[in-house]
Every structure is written in structure tokens, then in C-alpha cells.
Write a protein that binds this DNA or RNA. Sequence first.
DNA 1: CGAATTTCCGTGCACGGTAACGGAAATATT
DNA 2: AATATTTCCGTTACCGTGCACGGAAATTCG
Lengths: 350, 350
Amino acid sequence: MAQNEKITINDIARRTGLSKGTVDRVLHNRGEVSRKSYERVMEVIRELGYEPNVYASLLAKGKKHLVAVLIPASEPGSFWELAASGIGRGVDPVTAAGVEAVSFPYDQYDIESFRAACAEVLAAEPSGVVLAPIFQGETEAFTGKLSDSVIPYCFIDSRPDSNGYLAYFGMPLYKSGYLCADQLTRGQNIRGALIVRIRRDRYQQSDPTVNRRAGFLDYMLENAPDCKIDNVFVDPNDPEGIYSTLDGYFAEHPQVRHIVMFNSRIHLLVPWLAAHPNPERRVVGFDNLKANMDALRDGTVSVLIGQRPDEQVRLAIEALAEHALLGKAPARKDHFMHMDILTRYNVEDY
Amino acid sequence: MAQNEKITINDIARRTGLSKGTVDRVLHNRGEVSRKSYERVMEVIRELGYEPNVYASLLAKGKKHLVAVLIPASEPGSFWELAASGIGRGVDPVTAAGVEAVSFPYDQYDIESFRAACAEVLAAEPSGVVLAPIFQGETEAFTGKLSDSVIPYCFIDSRPDSNGYLAYFGMPLYKSGYLCADQLTRGQNIRGALIVRIRRDRYQQSDPTVNRRAGFLDYMLENAPDCKIDNVFVDPNDPEGIYSTLDGYFAEHPQVRHIVMFNSRIHLLVPWLAAHPNPERRVVGFDNLKANMDALRDGTVSVLIGQRPDEQVRLAIEALAEHALLGKAPARKDHFMHMDILTRYNVEDY
DNA sequence: CGAATTTCCGTGCACGGTAACGGAAATATT
DNA sequence: AATATTTCCGTTACCGTGCACGGAAATTCG
């Protein structure tokens, strides 16, 4: 299986009668080469099908590429912990190819910490940035600076309406609400359902759950128009409040057996659910947090819809690595990830 | 983010008072070095924490690593076509790191073609081999030869009871039957179900569906003990026979509304299913073949259980690449992949 | 003890590309 | 026309390893 002889930069230098210095200049178009020579070189490159030798390049440059990952700090058991696990676990091929991914964590409730992390990223002069658009305004400002410095960036999780990003990796939010409704109702025409929500007050953060709820409600409108849908609001930091809220609601609506949350915190309901078992009940939530998966295992939650945040991060890093190493942009910009349906029977190997 | 200065082979040469030639000799222990020098070099290597520069090494050797992928030919619309798509789509990081994956296809019904493919693989002197153990005896013989040549190999799809492989990537077969039963019955205590099977006669091939069926039957025993389970056998190359077989069965058992197949050919039932619509019916199959996904979309199939064969191949290639480049074996040997539940609502982004 | 081996090790080029340096040729300026 | 600038390009010294070659030192042999 001998390779067809590899074309080197010297081959095309010889062929054009120029020197490899000149060839190198056109390859990285850093100027200082006449129009005529430029075109001649490009022609021969195409003709011979030259492809650069990545190792030689990396070796000569002696420089590792840096991909900055700008996501909220990974508190134990949080969604962002899952995302962070997609960053270079062990020695992966990306690392082997000379790209190092480094995390720049910030507090997702503190816009100042986000600004600080942005500044750090810029100071590190990365070859690419992966980020989740948590703070809308600040994200826009930051990506503007990245564009100025010609640093490509990828969005994960959700995506603003801008256009300068290299790629986006995330779940189709509206559709995930639709899927969620189908898993909750199993296509049956149910009569009542409860949506448990977390009140958002401070900060103009982006909120992926809005689109999910929209998809959910559209499904219900089409498939279970008679279903009465209630909303209750809870505070994630007040377990007792959650418990009493559910107590209150179900005292009034004992017939409701379908419960759903559109954020990753379905596990907050576990204490109440475990204390009030009901084989007829169906509970659907999102994201494979440890606590959520445990709830799936013990039966308090029926279905989780997962989106593999670690894969999103990995794919984003890979896209940026390819761009940095080979200058290639991915064929598509938007990559909507598969929505994983998790039940107690397939959660083990997730 | 400056790296801590990289230790080179020259550093440890200087430190030991020897030359880089000698250091190189101990690094690849190819002899011609005195006991004393050897130990001194090893000591300094450990002391300074030397790690070889992969690019420089690869560049100097001028050799690309080859990973051979030994799977059945990817006929259009087949399971193995999906698997083959995991081989270097475009310029992936593995390729960038200097590893090329090449497919060695064979006819899965022709043991001679398998033998021929094995011989080709050996002749190509690969750094690693990915293979699916279709022919049990031949596979054993082949992996024996690989072991003799110290070539690591990974199994995908299924796994023999041997022990010399580097890693295995596949679906947990027994569990997938269990999951399948749950998706088919939705946990309800149904009264009847039909298993459509393909008769295997020739060749002693490995048969993943056996374990699936075992898992399925165990679930039914535990959760729907009164369910009468029937089996019919069909020939994949005889569409009309399939049609009439189903006609015959359902004429006798009009009350049965649950149908399952444990191989990837559920799409074979589509003509009959489409001609006899029944909103109460539930059909579950395996694997995301194009035809299967189409059936999901138009509603003739309720659920597919997917295993991402392309990912299995990709992961196996990556494991071998890491081994070839860095000499590292994966932490675990057996990697049971997640079982994807596909419905019409999440099939689009798969 | 001189010659023939063997053991052990240093030297130097190659791998393919990068980029600084300096200089010749072309063009612009006085 | 002489000088000052650009424009354009060749030369060259690396980057860190691999490996062939040859030779010094140690050992064995006659």
C-alpha cells in the first residue's frame, strides 16, 4: 500500500523555478510575491495536488494551537459540568494533532466574571473559541472583538441570531419541546399536565426553555387540544418551597398525572415524587445530569431528553482545530444534534 | 499560556554527557548501548519527564500509520454502509494526526472473500485493525496472526469470547432486547406479539439477534407473562413471500398489534404494513438504515433502536490511532454504546 | 604484544516546512 | 542620472527525531 509519492514544497519549487521560500509565501499568502509568480505557484499546486505535511508544519512552527472554551464554571452535578467533560479527556486525537483546548470558566450568574473571562481569552490569543451565548449583549460585544482579531468561534447549546460564527452545535430547541410532549403523552389525548418552571428575574440571559415550551404547547394543541396545562413556579434554592408548591398544586388537581420541566432541573422534584408514588404518573425532563439519571433509574422520572453537551463541545473543538490546522471551514454551519431519549432501560451506557 | 519548556532528546543527551544517537538507541531499545549508559539515560528521562515529539518522529520516519477496517462491503442501504461512513469522512483529526484508515471490504456471505481480505490486510502491514467478528472460526485464526505480528485490533458490533483485543465498541445486545420490549409494550401487559425472523442456514456466522431475543423474552416474562409470542420466518430476498406470510399470520391472529424484528431489516415489512394501516399497531425494529428511517417518518414503524455503527468505527479507529501514535491502550476494553431510541419526532437530526 | 573482533558511541544528514535576513532588480524620487 | 524606496525572491538556520556510517575504545585472539 505504498502511498503515491508525496508532493513536497520543494517539488513545486523546482517545478516553478522558484525557491521554497517563495512557495511558502504564497501558501500562507503573506505577500511579497509578484502576481505572476503567485499564479504560477497556485497552478502547479493544483496540478500536482500538493497537500502540506502537518507534522513538518507543526514542528517548524513549534507552536501549539489553543482553543479556548468559554462556558460557565462546572459546578458538580450541573449541566455545564457535562459540557466541560467534552474538553480533552485524556490524550485525544485533537491533542495529538497539536491543538490544546483550555477552559475559561465563569460564573453564569455574574456578568462581570464573564467579562473577565473574555478578557483572559483575548489575552491568550487563541486560534479559536467555543462559547455558549449566555449573556446576550456581552456575547455580541465579545464576538465582535474576536472577528476583529480574525479568531473563529463556534457556538454550542444555543445560538444568537448573528452570523459571524464558524459553526453551531446544539439541540433543536423547538423540536425538543415537541418530542418532549410526545414522550410525555405517548400520543394519547390526556386531560391535564403540569409544567414546572423556574422564575428568571435578574439579567437578560438567553433562555433556551422558551423555545422548548413553544414546541411543547404546539404539540399539545395539535394532539391533545382538550388538555388543561398548568404552570407552577419554583425556586431552585428552596427545596421546601418546591415541596409545598407541589403539595398545594396536587391537593387541588389530584387527577393530573403528567409533569414536565424544560430546564435541566427535573431532579428538584424527586423528593416530592418519591414521597408520593403513583404508577400512573409520567414525568419528563431534560439533560443527563447525574441526579436526573438517578431519578430515571429509581423510576421517579419516566424519560429524559439528552443532548450530549460533551459531544457538542468536542465537535466544536474539532471544527476549530480543523480550521486552525488546515484552514477548512465545516461544510454546514448549523449542526443540530440528535435528541436522545433516555429511559431506565438505556440510561446505563449513556 | 506558555508551555513549560519542552524537554527534547538533546536536553537529555547534554544532561547525560552522551549523544542524541545513544539516547535514541535507548529510547527504542535497539541495543548497542552499555548497561551503565542505558540506566543513566533512563534515569534522566524519568527525572526530566521527557516525552517524545510526535510530529518530529513522524516526520523523520516519513511513515503514515495505517488502520485497516475489515467489515462487510457496504451495499447501499445496508447496515454496513452506515458503519463504513465512520471511516475518515473528510479531513478528520485522526487523519490530521497522521493515521489513515482504509477499508478492506468483503462479502459477508462468502467466507473465501473474508479470507482474501484478511490476507490483504496482513500484506498491508497495518498499525491496527478494526473488525467485526462475522465468521467466528476465521476471525479467531486471523486475530491469532495479528497477535503474532503484534498488531493490535478492535472489535465492533459484536465481540467473541477471546481476550486479545485492544478494545470493543458495540451495543449491549441482551439489554437492547430488553429495551426493545419496553418500547414495544410501553410497559403495558399486552396479550400478543409477533417476532419476525430471518432464517439463517448457511455458514456458522455470529448472530447478534440471539442475545437480543433473549433479552426481549426475559422482559416479557417479567412484565407481560400472559403475552403469547409468535414467531414467523421470512426470506429477505422474497418480498412477496413476506407479504403473504404476514397476510397469513394476521388472518389467524387479527388481535395481535405488536410486531418486532431483531435485525436491521424491519423495512422489509413496510409494504404489508402500509397496505394494512392500524393506528393501534406498534412496530419496533433496529438500526437507522435509510429505509427504516423513512418508515419511521411515515408512521409504519413506531420506534427504531439505533447504535451508531459509524461512531463505533470512529472510536475504534481513534483507539488504534492513539495506540499507534502514543502507545497508550484505552482505560477500559469494553465500550458498550448508548442505545438510541428513535421516533418520528427525533429522527430528523440523527 | 600486535592484530582482529566486538562493543559502544558520536557525527551528520534527512524529513518538510517556517520565517528571518539580506540582497538584486524594478520602480520612484530628487 | 544618481539616489532612495519598494517589490520580490533566494539563502539559510532551525524544529526534534530517526538512522546510517564510521571510528574509538575495549575485548578477544593468535
